[in-house]
């Protein structure tokens, strides 16, 4: 057909078409394959969520599952942070340190950490007049910021205040809030420090 010489320098001279040898598979690659297959099946079993179309992030152990649950005992805590930042944080600060001369701090505050029956009353009707907080004298006119909040939200935000920024006081339950609301009725007159101190 073609009279020209076959290429010789650049490419190898034309050779026969290749053939394959009949040497068997090495044993180690079969072992490796089965080890990987075994791993694959175990891995798939752990992470596949049983082929459920609703499982996006399967947990392998009860410990991992528990990690994603809200902390036990204070279910209102997380919601409390949101309420705090919307309602209280503007004056009392997102760090709970308050504003000098205007809003007292919650951190190490005897009012925030003390008797919950006194603390619950403050957001329900407000506070007025001179008050001693954490060694500082304040002259307040706090409106009834919490009067419109439902019982569980108010309980959540008070719990948040009592358990954040290093505070470690007992949680406030919605039942306690409900009881205090019932006691004070439809009072709109702000509390004074003396009135609050009289309450046990």
């Amino acid at each position: 057909m073609s009279a020209q010489p076959r290429p010789s320098t650049l490419t190898a001279a034309e050779t026969a078409e290749p053939r394959a040898g009949d040497i068997a598979l090495p044993l180690w690659i079969i072992v490796l394959l089965f080890l990987l297959l075994y791993w694959g099946v175990v891995y798939f079993d752990q992470y596949s969520g049983g082929f459920s179309p609703e499982v996006y992030m399967p947990c392998r152990s009860t410990a991992e599952l528990a990690m994603y649950q809200p902390p036990a005992g204070a279910p209102e805590f997380a919601g409390g942070k949101t309420v705090y930042e919307n309602v209280c944080g503007l004056c009392h600060g997102t760090d709970g340190m308050g504003k000098p001369g205007q809003a007292p701090p919650f951190v190490n505050s005897e009012w925030a950490l003390g008797n919950p029956n006194r603390m619950i009353r403050i957001p329900l009707a407000g506070l007025t007049g001179p008050i001693q907080v954490a060694g500082q004298q304040y002259n307040l006119a706090m409106p009834a910021m919490g009067a419109a909040l439902p019982d569980d939200d108010l309980a959540a935000v008070l719990t948040y205040i009592r358990q954040s920024w290093g505070n470690k006081a007992s949680a406030v339950t919605p039942e306690q809030v409900k009881a205090v609301r019932a006691e004070i009725g439809n009072r709109t007159q702000p509390w004074t420090a003396e009135q609050l101190n009289a309450i046990q």
Partner: peptide
């Protein structure tokens, strides 16, 4: 798999490894 044995003018080592 074609060019290596062809250009070396040898057999491919194993058909079964290639099959795998």
């Amino acid at each position: 798999f074609y060019f290596v044995p062809k250009l070396l003018n040898r057999e491919l080592h194993s058909r079964y490894l290639a099959l795998m």
